[in-house]
Write a protein that binds this DNA or RNA. Structure first.
Length: 491
RNA sequence: CGGGAAGUGGCGCAGGUGGUAGCGCAUCUGGUUUGGGACCAGAGGGUCGCAGGUUCGAGUCCUGUCUUCCCGACCA
């Protein structure tokens, strides 16, 4: 009968996998490394999408769609880009199947070999810049501010639901600008958009920073990122925004004529977040009873469960429930009334806790007598009796409070798991576990960064944007350093 | 790609030395229940991943193959 989740303490990674499956978010499919996102999980993703999409449009972007397939030759045009992705590409080589001459089934028709192989996009810079070439002649054609919602494929060796799947859903923004300053400003603006969204809507605090040269996106001059800390003390990259310089413009010969009549290469950015955010959401807020959702992302913010004997009692309860639902919906709150007779109340309580519904209202015979309801909070697992008349004011207040509490709790956790390391001994000792964010001095070289990774498995998550200048010495080499960078073990 | 494990009803598993498949959960029916994952009684459902081979006979032995999961190097 024990349907309980593995606890986080017993096995964090097992807890995560069980939660994703039992809360009906996603499941593994018959396709290696590729998941099925189930309706409940997709409903959460849709809310993420809707909010981000609004923010993209408010910052002047429009959506477009580019092909899934990219000719192989496009890839080799930007050298560091191809280096970064070559080892994880799915390649289409044929376009036809035929009956297997040796028996049942079908085989690839060897005569249907493609002249040029097609790459299933791992990211779309190349096909997009090949297209932008046709769109841009003059400074009057700039800027181009485009986003696309799409699926991409990266042939990862080891996959995990939402965190790393061979195929994943994301959005990728690709912009073109006349000046370097404008492109950098765009990359920074989008980092702000991501920061606001992840903190305000997902209730996940993030560090903002720059990636080191070694961790930078393949083909970028600068990668801005937001980094979140998970409950097990490991870091998760939640979003990136890249200043691409003129690399792609040069690779695809995208020039424009400026006001002085001279030909110039276009400046570029790209930025993206993926279904990986679902993983961040789960690993930031959830507990041993299941998913905990911030109200702003919950497919249903409130669920009403009737407790009754017989049709007559159900009818009386339904009347109250319908009335409350009307009042809540009028305030823009999403409510579900679960009057199914096929499951018992206790079963429903557990199910909705597992699925992270922020507030649960139970109405039973006692409540009919007293004119009350039982209101239960998912985040604190506390219950209170509330007068039916007060529900429509109490619920919005509580939803706000839950949203705020979740963020604050995650922020407190991050602060409690952020520390400085001032010597190699200290650093090494910390990194024997998953200590969270460790602020330490670094000499600025990729060589040292790699050495530290080799020795401790810790990577530089970012060079914080708001870091104060501080003289110090590299934790490994003892060479001088002007500011601390953030180390952690990462997903 | 290197190391390990596993494929048997929807899910989780059991099936010494070969003899024609079983358990728990889930499902369905009837009844009693309903304030934290109900109970009783009955029922349905599997060519044992796939392809060969050995054998009178293969879930079991042999060969090949595919897939999935876990651990490492890579990554949003």
């Amino acid at each position: 009968m024990a349907k309980h989740l593995t606890t986080r303490e017993a096995d964090y990674s097992k807890w995560y996998n069980e939660l994703v499956v039992k809360a009906d978010l996603a499941q593994n499919s018959g396709v290696r490394g590729s998941m099925v996102i189930k309706p409940y999980g997709f409903a959460i993703w849709e809310r993420i999408q809707a909010d981000l999409d609004r923010r993209f449009k408010e910052t002047g972007h429009m959506n477009a769609y580019f092909p899934l397939f990219i000719p192989k030759s496009y890839f080799s045009k930007e050298a560091s880009h191809v280096d970064g992705f070559a080892k994880e590409c799915a390649v289409v080589t044929h376009y036809r199947l035929m009956d297997d001459p040796n028996g049942g089934g079908v085989v690839v028709d060897p005569s249907a070999k493609l002249e040029e192989e097609l790459i299933v996009r791992p990211t779309s810079e190349t096909i997009i810049w090949d297209t932008y070439k046709d769109w841009i002649q003059s400074y009057r054609d700039l800027p181009i501010l485009v986003n696309q919602w799409a699926n991409v494929v990266r042939w990862e060796m080891r996959t995990r639901l939402f965190l790393r799947t061979a195929e994943f859903l994301w959005q990728e923004g690709h912009t073109a600008h006349a000046t370097k300053q404008e492109a950098i400003a765009e990359a920074e603006t989008m980092l702000d958009v991501y920061t606001d969204f992840v903190q305000d809507v997902m209730a996940i605090p993030v560090l903002r920073g720059l990636k080191t040269e070694g961790e930078r996106f393949a083909g970028a001059l600068e990668t801005y990122c937001i980094e979140a800390l998970m409950q097990d003390g490991k870091a998760l990259q939640a979003g990136t925004s890249h200043f691409l310089g003129q690399n792609f413009a040069k690779a695809f010969e995208v020039k424009f004529q400026n006001k002085e009549g001279k030909q110039e290469y276009v400046w570029a950015t790209s930025w993206g977040v993926s279904t990986r955010l679902m993983g961040a959401l789960i690993m930031t807020h959830s507990d041993d009873n299941g998913l905990v959702l911030p109200p702003k992302l919950a497919p249903y913010q409130v669920v009403i469960v009737p407790i009754y004997k017989g049709q007559e009692q159900l009818d009386a309860i339904s009347e109250v429930a319908e009335d409350l639902m009307g009042q809540l919906r009028a305030k823009g709150i999403t409510v579900k009334y679960d009057n199914r007779d096929t499951h018992k109340p206790g079963w429903k309580f557990n199910q909705y806790e597992l699925q992270g519904i922020p507030l649960r209202i139970a109405i039973g015979p006692k409540d009919l007598e007293k004119g009350s309801v039982e209101l239960a909070r998912r985040d604190t697992l506390t219950k209170q009796f509330v007068d039916q008349k007060e529900v429509s004011t109490k619920v919005p207040e509580l939803l706000d409070e839950i949203q705020h509490t979740l963020f604050q709790k995650a922020l407190d956790f991050r602060e409690a798991h952020s520390q400085e390391a001032n010597s190699w001994e200290e650093f090494e000792t910390l990194m024997k576990g998953n200590p969270g964010f460790v602020y330490a001095h670094w000499d600025g070289t990729t060589e040292t960064e790699n050495k530290i990774k080799e020795l401790t498995k810790a990577t530089i998550r970012c060079i914080p944007l708001d870091a104060k200048e501080e003289d110090g010495v590299c934790v490994l080499t003892g060479k001088p350093s002007k500011q601390r960078v953030v180390f952690a073990k990462a997903y």
